[in-house]
Write a protein that binds this DNA or RNA. Structure first.
Lengths: 163, 163
DNA sequence: ATTTTAAAAGAGAGTTATTCTCAATAAGAC
DNA sequence: GTCTTATTGAGAATAACTCTCTTTTAAAAT
């Protein structure tokens, strides 16, 4: 059973080069800037399943010698999520994380609601459900995520106050 | 195929009475307050699939003659989400929504990333995946949500700027 | 190449959902 | 009834994110 080929067409191409990103931006009357290219590169070179917050991305860019403003980082990351290039994840309580959106490495998250420890897992049928559902409603699919909220073994043992 | 019975045991009981809520709170050394009882009631009497933001809940409480502070509302809603009584939803960009967590009416959300229009849909296999995955990792399941990010038909036609 | 024009970047102020603090209150145990 | 301590209420504090506005620059037009 070749699932990967079956799913490959589901979402828009995710192995963006500077050129393919440029083409897609131009389609909408937008521009390819050095900042956008650098940020795309960061996410493409991240280990599979690794995600970054806006703040973490800013620091990483800085250590690599790229001083891109926080405003631009927030704008770019949101833009790329809306294009389907990045996935916007709600892993922590108070801020978002972003990761590259690749059907090949499509995965989901099991999150402890108490300590936020996160486990990644794969499930081939989820993307199919997402594809079927969005098609049925005439929506253009960007991403689908199964998020499981649970209590991890360690937190099941600990007693915390309600406040 | 009796799916409902199959799934019923998956998550902790959701038809809470004041007494069962009290019992579960006491188990953890917590207390049943009039505020918590009223908020539970609000969510239980909401139409199936209806969800509220903290602000909306505050207004609804007010119109019903209950003046519960915003602090308490935020605390209670988070507490109940961590107990598995409520589901915490990320439907809008900047605030959360809450709804009662009932296996019988378990559903998921298809969201337009541009206008936030949301469509609910059901899928029986998602809860099974969530149950299997959390069991495998030794986690105690509270909720699992399949969130589909997409562009709705109307927004596919409109052209917006990147900023 | 040079000019043009509008998108995008940068800087920092502004917004707002949510959390925190702390004194006052009250649930539940004895 | 008394005691302990969880919880509430009020408002201040926090912080993630957005907005505004000027400057810069991508890329089309000349």
């Amino acid at each position: 059973m070749i699932v990967i080929n079956d799913l490959n067409w589901v979402m828009s191409m995710s192995f963006y080069t500077a050129d393919s990103l440029k083409a897609e931006l131009h389609e909408r009357g937008w521009r390819l800037t050095p900042q956008r290219e650098v940020i795309l590169n960061i996410f493409q070179n991240l280990a599979a399943g690794k995600h970054l917050s806006a703040e973490e991305l800013c620091e990483l860019l800085h250590t690599e010698g790229h001083d891109i403003s926080l405003s631009t980082i927030y704008r770019t990351v949101k833009l790329m999520a809306r294009m389907g290039i990045l996935r916007e994840l709600e892993l922590a309580e108070d801020h978002k994380h972003y990761e590259i959106n690749q059907p090949y490495h499509h995965h989901h998250h099991l999150i402890c609601v108490k300590c936020n420890q996160t486990i990644e897992f794969k499930n081939e049928s989820v993307l199919k459900i997402g594809d079927k559902t969005s098609k049925k409603e005439g929506y253009h699919l960007l991403d689908c995520q199964l998020t499981i909220h649970a209590v991890c073994p360690s937190c099941q043992r600990s007693i915390v106050s309600a406040n």
